[in-house]
């Protein structure tokens, strides 16, 4: 049956005046949004994209150099990559502490958010900021404002992938 009625109590029908008001209001909001959009300055998409590209690329290239140094000293590629990750996390955290990372972020946008250094920044920035509220509810709790969601969804997806892989076999 092509019955599109939704379950639940039926809504009280609007009077004609109410309908007119509702339509007028949505029309007004749309018209205003168009006016505002016409005035708003735009992102410079090209400049932003270029900055994100070269900053993100440079961070990755630095990590690659560190990886190569570890490999040259005899580490296996897997360990070298892990060690490079740890060093990059340290650098991101340290530069946040020094107050440099947010200046990079202003220019680079996603170029400094997406690399693992940005993940470290998202941990240190709130932890540092909320130190005045104590070491339990301030530093430790706020540390995961952004890192928390990242870990939650990372874990959820990885376990789901594991379950799918297990049952597909």
């Amino acid at each position: 049956m092509a019955d599109s009625k939704q379950p639940g109590p039926p809504k009280k029908p609007l009077t004609l005046a109410e309908q007119v008001m509702q339509q007028k209001q949505t029309y007004d909001q749309q018209a205003y949004q168009r006016l505002a959009d016409g005035v708003k300055p735009r992102h410079n998409v090209l400049v932003n994209a270029l900055n994100a590209f070269w900053v993100g690329g440079s961070i990755a290239a630095l990590a690659q150099i560190i990886t190569l140094i570890f490999i040259a000293t005899g580490a296996n590629p897997q360990d070298a990559s892990t060690a490079a990750t740890i060093i990059m996390v340290f650098l991101g955290a340290f530069m946040t502490g020094l107050g440099i990372y947010d200046e990079i972020g202003k220019v680079a946008g996603a170029g400094s958010i997406i690399p693992i250094t940005g993940f470290a920044n998202s941990i240190v920035a709130p932890a540092m900021e909320y130190k005045r509220e104590g070491f339990v509810f301030g530093v430790a709790a706020r540390m995961f404002t952004i890192a928390g969601p990242v870990l939650v969804y990372g874990f959820v997806v990885s376990v789901l992938i594991g379950l799918i892989a297990y049952f597909l076999k």
């Binding site: 992102h43 998409v45 932003n48 994209a49 900055n51 994100a52 590209f53 070269w54 900053v55 993100g56 690329g57 440079s58 961070i59 990755a60 290239a61 990590a63 690659q64 150099i65 190569l68 680079a108 946008g109 996603a110 170029g111 958010i113 997406i114 690399p115």
Partner: peptide, 20 residues
């Protein structure tokens, strides 16, 4: 190193475009 620069840059570029 150059390949790391290009791939790392491109991934960030995608993120920037999504934001903008």
């Amino acid at each position: 190193i150059i390949m790391a620069f290009i791939i790392g840059g491109l991934i960030c570029l995608v993120g920037q475009l999504i934001m903008d």
